[in-house]
Computed example of a mutant assay.
Amino acid sequence: MSGGARDERPLLMLDSGIGGLTVLREARVLMPERRFLYVVDDAAFPYGNWEEAALRERLVALFGELIAAHDPVACVVACNTASTLALDALRRAYPEMLFVGTVPAIKPAAERTRSGLVSVLATPGTVKRQYTRDLIEQWATKCEVRLVGSVNLAALAETYMRHGLVAEEAVHAEIAPCFVEKDGRRTDIVVLACTHYPFVVNRMRKMAPWPVDWLDPAEAIARRALAILPRIDGEGPVARDPDIAVFTSNRPDAVTRRLMQGFGLVA
């Protein structure tokens, strides 16, 4: 912005549940002067249960409503499933809006691996998406990439964040297919291709058969948002409206409200 003006429009972040809070956490570190609007599409949770065409249509319509109601400076689709499915459609539908997507961190994984064995841990929807396979073809042809579709891990992360408990055996069952041994080599990087997963990464480390680099994309997403947004003039903290959480169900339970408040969101 120029002339000392401050753009008070919020940066909108959307996920089907709590996963996008991992991105919000990083974005606040990089952009403390920004105001944030966190949208929980809990009326549609989990996205993995939707038919692709119906979910894409829902997301395009929902973002239209949110843009009209809140006039965000940009929108972050803080969900791999939604991004790999609908990001192109959103950009076509709202060409004047800046969108930042969340896609599997396959490029950095391919650059960092030493063994050449990389696993992508994602929801089944992200695993089957052509978008994901195109990323592998573009950036990771010199690696062996295993796509692991976890049916239950996002829900386990939601349970953990709401109640502080998670069955470690259940976590182990979800991550076990990520670990491959071949010709004396072992998987050395697991891409966390769902924003929910970092919430249970400590449990994953504990249950892993050997140490790996768990690649969390949250900081990279936040940095991408910072890069495309206009700069806000001025230094230091300023008085501004609080960050808020919006629930598409309009019926968040008390535990979820407290969780949002714990992240500094007015729910």
Rank of each mutant, 00 (worst) to 15 (best):
Val190Met: 00
Ala82Asn: 06
Arg203Val: 03
Leu55Cys: 12
Arg9Val: 08
Ala54Val: 12
Leu98Ile: 03
Ile18Met: 12
Cys178Gln: 06
Val238Gln: 11
Pro72Lys: 06
Val76Gly: 02
Glu144Arg: 13
Ala78Met: 11
Ala193Asp: 01
Glu111Ile: 05
Ala105Glu: 00
Phe99Asp: 00
Thr84Asn: 07
Gly164Cys: 06
Asp253Met: 04
Ala140Cys: 10
Phe45Trp: 11
Glu8Pro: 01
Glu96Leu: 12
Ser83Thr: 15
Leu165Ile: 05
Pro209His: 11
Met13Ala: 07
Val212Glu: 02
Thr22His: 10
Pro104Asp: 07
Leu153Phe: 10
Glu158Thr: 05
Gly19Asn: 04
Gly125Leu: 05
Leu12Met: 14
Ala239Thr: 08
Glu51Ala: 13
Thr256Ser: 09
Asp188His: 07
Ser83Val: 04
Ser115Pro: 07
Leu117Cys: 09
Arg6Val: 14
Ala110Val: 11
Ile221Gly: 03
Val151Gln: 14
Leu259Asn: 06
Asp42Arg: 07
Leu30Met: 13
Arg112Gln: 15
Pro198Cys: 10
Arg92Pro: 03
Thr113Cys: 10
Thr187Asn: 07
Leu24Ala: 08
Ala155Thr: 04
Ala167Phe: 09
Pro211Val: 12
Pro10Ala: 05
Ser2Gly: 14
Leu156Thr: 01
Val29Lys: 13
Trp139Pro: 03
Met97Lys: 13
Thr123Lys: 09
Thr102Asp: 08
Glu96Met: 15
Ser249Lys: 05
Gln138Ser: 10
Gly20Gln: 03
Asn49Cys: 11
Ala218Tyr: 00
Pro95Gly: 06
Tyr94Met: 13
Ala53Phe: 06
Pro32Asn: 14
Arg205Phe: 07
Val212Tyr: 03
Arg91Pro: 08
Leu117Gln: 07
Leu153Asn: 01
Thr81Gln: 11
Asp7Glu: 15
Glu219Thr: 12
Ala155Met: 04
Val266Ala: 05
Arg114Leu: 11
Ala53Ser: 13
Arg28His: 09
Pro177Thr: 09
Gly262Leu: 11
Pro252Ser: 05
Leu14Gln: 03
Pro72Gln: 04
Glu26Arg: 14
Met161Tyr: 00
Leu14Val: 12
Gly125Val: 12
Ile67Trp: 08
Pro209Ser: 11
Gly236Pro: 02
Arg112Thr: 14
Val191Met: 03
Trp50Glu: 00
Ala69Gly: 02
Glu57Gln: 15
Ala89Pro: 06
Leu259Ile: 09
Ala44Arg: 08
Arg240Gln: 13
Ala170Cys: 03
Ala239Tyr: 08
Gly48Trp: 06
Val180Pro: 00
Gly20Cys: 09
Ala157Leu: 04
His70Ile: 12
Val40Ala: 01
Ala43Glu: 10
Pro242His: 11
Val76Ala: 08
Leu21Ile: 13
Val180Arg: 02
Leu85Lys: 11
Arg231Tyr: 07
Met1Ile: 11
Thr81Pro: 10
Asp7Tyr: 15
Phe179Cys: 05
Ser2Ala: 15
Met204Asn: 02
Leu85Tyr: 09
Asp183Ala: 14
Arg112Ser: 14
Gly116Ile: 00
Gly48Leu: 03
Pro177Ala: 05
Leu62Cys: 04
Asp188Met: 03
